[in-house]
């Protein structure tokens, strides 16, 4: 194996700037997508546990459709197919005038996809609280809405902190797929540095270290939150 080491490439202009930009795009895509995933996923998770069969089926269908199509296909569908299915004017707007087309599409695709995974965690959390609490709430005269607001959700969201942490970490890893539609995030940047300089080893090492650091930072933070949010007497759900 012959290879010319040159670690200084990572702190040289313009590559250091590229890496920083790449990291910022990775963070931007992941965090924006998480907002969609968490909000929509929570709503879907609640729908999965409501007494109404129609709502339950709707949410279940959403989960099956998103879970059984690869994330990369979702990216392509939103980027290439979705604008064609819109009425002409709207399709044109998406293709020509929408600000940051690749970024926006990546956020939407990743957010909607991750929502299906968050949904399953929220559902599992609500089910783990148990029907006894639900019935007790109803017996005390709470409406269905109040049961969710004051009994089920406060406990459910505390139980699911650990599995939600792994979903949150997964969204960072999955944000790398945004490179396929042209977002120059962290992984794309390192590939580009490799192509420009042939210093693949150094470039990929940089990305590897940064992703690992993100993981360990988030895990450390979440362990603190977990300790404070643990429900006494209830075993939290294992990460899934």
């Amino acid at each position: 194996m012959t290879y010319n080491w040159n670690w200084s490439i990572l702190i040289n202009d313009p590559y250091l700037g590229w890496l920083v930009d790449g990291l910022l795009w990775t963070l931007a895509v992941s965090l924006a997508a998480w907002v969609i995933a968490f909000t929509l996923g929570s709503v879907l998770g609640i729908l999965r546990t409501t007494p109404s069969p129609t709502l339950r089926t709707m949410a279940a269908t959403y989960v099956e459709v998103f879970r059984n199509i690869p994330l990369l296909v979702h990216f392509f569908l939103w980027y290439f197919v979705f604008p064609e299915l819109l009425p002409d004017a709207a399709g044109m707007w998406v293709k020509r005038e929408m600000p940051l087309p690749a970024f926006t599409t990546a956020v939407v695709a990743l957010g909607l996809y991750t929502a299906s995974r968050v949904c399953e965690q929220v559902r599992a959390g609500i089910e783990a609280v148990g029907s006894g609490q639900r019935n007790a709430g109803r017996a005390m005269g709470f409406t269905e809405q109040q049961v969710y607001r004051y009994v089920l959700l406060p406990v459910a969201f505390r139980i699911i902190v650990p599995p939600m942490t792994s979903e949150f970490l997964t969204i960072f890893k999955n944000s790398s797929l945004a490179l396929t539609i042209g977002v120059i995030e962290l992984t794309a940047v390192t590939r580009r540095i490799e192509e420009y300089t042939f210093q693949g080893f150094e470039a990929f090492t940089a990305a590897t270290v940064i992703y690992s650091l993100i993981t360990f930072t988030v895990m450390g933070l979440m362990r603190l939150i977990e300790r404070r949010s643990r429900v006494p007497g209830m075993i939290s759900l294992g990460s899934g």
Binding site: L169, F172, K173, N174, S175, S176, L177, L179, T187, T190, R191, E194, F204, A207, T208, Y211, S212, I214, T215, F216
Partner: peptide, 12 residues
């Protein structure tokens, strides 16, 4: 390996 995106591992 669980902390890395699969795409990065493929590139590696």
């Amino acid at each position: 390996f669980r902390s890395l995106p699969l795409i990065l591992v493929i590139f590696w």
